[in-house]
Every structure is written in structure tokens, then in C-alpha cells.
Amino acid sequence: MDGESVRIAKDVLSAGAEAKICLPDSPEEFSRALARRGSRRPVVLGDDRALLRTVALLHRERELAEGALSLVPIGPQDALEVAHALGVPRSTPAAARVALHGAVRRLDLLVDDSDGVVLGDLLVPGVPLPVAAAPSVWGTCRSLVRTLVRPAPAPVARLRVEADGILLADVDAPLEGLTVRPVGGTAEVTVHPASAPTRHATAGTVTVSGPDFRYRADGRLTGPVRRRTWTVRAGAWGLTLPVEAA
């Protein structure tokens, strides 16, 4: 989709190291190329989905603790929010140079009971992202929309939330949302009840159960499920970042 950025990344990487370039045409080819990496350190050219796919594959093969990954971000900015939050440079040449000369930072990982992984924030319940109106239509109809449309109420869910076995919310109390973020070897848990103060906790495991619910992690919507447990794996994977960020 962005051949020029790929060319730039290849040129920078090949100028600074003995690089083998793989251009897989399918997820299956991607998996085979990663499995045949040998002693080479993988550098992923792509967006958050490509990074997540790589981490998930290495996790399933129980090879995530071996070595480190690098990412050269290629794609629209809204598809690279996780990468940038982790500290990956925004420009292609800068990120390629970091892949060559950066420092490895060990990062935490959320692993669920279906062997799925989460790199960034976990949001429960997950809802579809809003669709933006076209600029021309929005400019024309702004005053009418302000007059006729009322903000929709925030969706609520009835879920049971436990952090290391401690009950933070139950199905008898509506819940506006739950955020889980791996930080410093533990999960930072924030519960937003619909009619009570926000609650905070830190834990090694977080379990959510109740009526069918969806959750959003790393930009992806998953579910519905009735129960899911996430466990923090401290320093589970390594990402090459600028020296000052690592």
C-alpha cells in the first residue's frame, strides 16, 4: 500500500546490516517467514496489526522471550496508535535507524485464557467506533444537528469484575466501562460504574464475566464472550526503541 516507505526502510536496513527481505503475500507466508528467521532479528514493516500478529505468533510458539522485535511503522496514523504509544518513531527512516542502533526495552503483555495477547490498553465493554460524517455534509448540517440531535446515553453493561479474586463490580450494578493497562509488571485496573465513584486497583489477573460482552484491545473488537481472564506477563517481550526511550 505504501511502496515508497517500504523502499526507504529496505535501503536504510540493508545499508546498515546484512538484511534478508521477505515480502509475504498472506498470513500463512508471514508465519513461515518468521519461523525460518534463524538467528536473524525480525524487523516488521507495517502497522499495529502486523506487530500484534508477530507478537501473537511468537507467543504461541513460546519463542517470545528469545531476542527482540523491531517495527518500522508503515500505514495511516490511526493504524499505528499502539506502536507510537510504545515509543516507536513516527518517521520511516528514523524507525529503520532505531532498528539498527536502538536499545531493547522489555515490555509487559496481557495474555488471556484463550492464548490471545494484548500489547496496549484493554477496554470493556468494546463498542464499534463512531463513524465520522463527511466534512462537506457536516459543515452544511452542523447547526441543524446541534438543534435536533441529543447526545446518546453512554452504553452500560452488567458485568462481574474481579482483580486477583477481589470483587470490583458485580452484575447488579450497571458499568459504563473498564480499562486494563499493563504497567510495571502489574495490571492497572480502572472501573467506571454508572452511578458510583471510579475504582482503581492493581492486579496480576483480571477476570470479567456476565452476559455476552465484547472488548476492544489494540484497536480490535473481540467477542461476544461470557467470561475472560487476562494475566500480566512482566517483561514478556522485547521491542527495539530509541536509546533515550528504552
Results as ranks from 00 to 15, higher is better:
P24E: 05
T147L: 15
R214L: 13
R37T: 08
S39Y: 03
V104A: 12
S143C: 09
A17L: 05
R214E: 13
E244D: 15
W138H: 13
P125T: 08
L64D: 04
V189Q: 02
R32N: 13
C141N: 05
P24M: 08
L110Y: 04
G139H: 11
G116N: 12
V243G: 10
V124W: 07
D112I: 06
V72P: 07
R181N: 12
K10S: 09
V44S: 08
V104G: 05
A236G: 02
A194N: 10
V208Y: 03
A203Q: 01
S143V: 13
G87D: 09
V145C: 07
V12G: 08
P174D: 02
P42A: 10
P135A: 04
A187V: 11
A83R: 04
I166F: 07
R214C: 10
V12E: 07
T202Q: 12
V232T: 04
L51E: 07
P24D: 05
A9K: 02
A187Q: 06
W237R: 04
S195E: 13
R40Q: 12
D25T: 12
R36L: 15
E176Y: 11
T54D: 04
V55Q: 01
A50V: 12
L178C: 03
S14Q: 13
P130K: 11
D108R: 12
R97P: 02
L129N: 12
C141S: 14
P130N: 12
G16Q: 07
R228I: 14
L86C: 03
H59S: 05
S14K: 10
L107Q: 00
L241A: 07
V117D: 02
L129D: 15
L175R: 07
P76K: 07
V104Q: 07
L64M: 09
R233V: 08
V127L: 15
G235Q: 11
A157K: 00
E66V: 11
V149Q: 14
R7T: 14
R199W: 06
L109F: 04
T240Y: 00
A85K: 12
P151V: 06
G235I: 11
P153L: 11
L122V: 06
E29G: 15
R60H: 11
V6M: 04
Q77P: 12
F213D: 01
L168F: 00
D212Y: 06
A187Y: 00
V149F: 13
T92C: 09
I8W: 04
V43F: 03
C22W: 01
P89A: 06
T231L: 02
A33N: 05
G67W: 10
V43Y: 05
H84P: 05
E4N: 13
R199I: 06
D164C: 08
V98M: 10
R160F: 10
L144S: 12
P76E: 09
R160G: 03
L168R: 00
G204H: 08
D164W: 02
L86P: 08
G46H: 07
L109N: 04
W237N: 00
Q77E: 15
D121I: 13
T205S: 11
V145A: 15
S143T: 13
V189W: 03
C141W: 03
G16R: 04
V232G: 01
P128W: 14
S114C: 01
A203C: 02
D25G: 15
A56F: 09
Q77A: 15
V6Q: 01
K20G: 10
P242H: 02
V225Q: 01
